[in-house]
């Protein structure tokens, strides 16, 4: 694996995370519990689509094979996706969506913070822009997790169920592989394992304020960030997302 091949893979991980989660969040449009939340969710999704365009755009540039952000998003099959399993999990109820968002935002904000000092200026520049957006996402999702966790009996129970369901997908964020090692060696990105402490700081503070209990098991599913073992959910998501591009290849839209 050359450095550029590793960088390409690393950029896909960043871009696929925001692509898939942005897509999931956009599924809420028109169906949220209250108008203000509908509008807020759309803002989050829009930020993530914008970040996707930047990360996948850079990935295509690094790859140098004439692809662009759209061909990467719409013409790869599931096994070529490099997103965390967490972000492809279905929306479930509003609580599950917001819990997934919070866990991702916490990880994302820590990661972007480190990437701002990347040795690759292009990476640092995108991270600087995205980290402002993500700081707000985290504030909002954390507030909502606290509000619902420490709300009514029903909202508390739903948030605890969401946390129990999603927690096994947290571990994957911090597992390092050869791509990560190459990025660390080049000074482009941090070792994922080194992000855990800061992540735990955020989640422990917020989840305890939310009166929620972090599951004791440290078991973690894996296979998203290297593409080897996605969930069944991803294929269905891609079916709708990629349908037009697949059904009418080569068109301009």
């Amino acid at each position: 694996m050359t450095r550029d091949e590793a960088l390409f893979d690393f950029l896909l991980r960043l871009g696929d995370n925001t692509l898939i989660l942005g897509h999931r969040v956009s599924e809420w449009c028109g169906h949220a519990p209250v108008l203000e939340e509908d509008i807020a969710l759309a803002n989050t999704a829009l930020d993530m689509i914008g970040q996707t365009q930047m990360w996948l755009g850079l990935a295509a540039e690094v790859e140098g094979k004439g692809r662009d952000a759209d061909t990467l998003a719409f013409l790869r099959d599931a096994w070529d996706f490099r997103n965390l399993l967490l972000v492809e999990m279905p929306n479930g109820d509003f609580g599950q969506t917001l819990m997934r968002q919070f866990l991702f935002d916490a990880f994302h904000s820590v990661l972007l913070g480190r990437l701002m000092t990347s040795s690759d200026e292009r990476v640092a520049a995108i991270a600087a822009k995205a980290s402002k957006e993500v700081a707000y996402h985290l504030e909002r999702s954390a507030d909502t997790v606290v509000g619902l966790g420490d709300g009514t009996e029903e909202s508390h129970a739903r948030m605890q169920a969401a946390l129990d369901y999603l927690w096994p997908y947290v571990g994957e964020m911090f597992r390092a592989d050869a791509v990560d090692a190459e990025m660390v060696a080049a000074g482009i990105a941090p070792d994922p394992a080194g992000l855990r402490e800061e992540f735990d700081g955020i989640t422990t503070r917020v989840l305890s304020e939310a009166t929620l209990e972090i599951p004791a098991s440290s078991f973690g599913h894996k296979g998203g960030k290297d593409g080897s073992f996605h969930t069944e959910h991803l294929g269905h998501l891609l079916c709708s997302m990629q349908w037009l591009q697949r059904a009418y290849p080569g068109c301009e839209w």
Binding site: L35, E36, I39, A40, N43, R140, D143, G147
Partner: peptide
């Protein structure tokens, strides 16, 4: 509409 002032500010930002 918002449940409290903090959320009202956030909603205002988003809306």
């Amino acid at each position: 509409h918002a449940p409290d002032a903090d959320m009202a500010i956030k909603n205002a930002r988003d809306v």
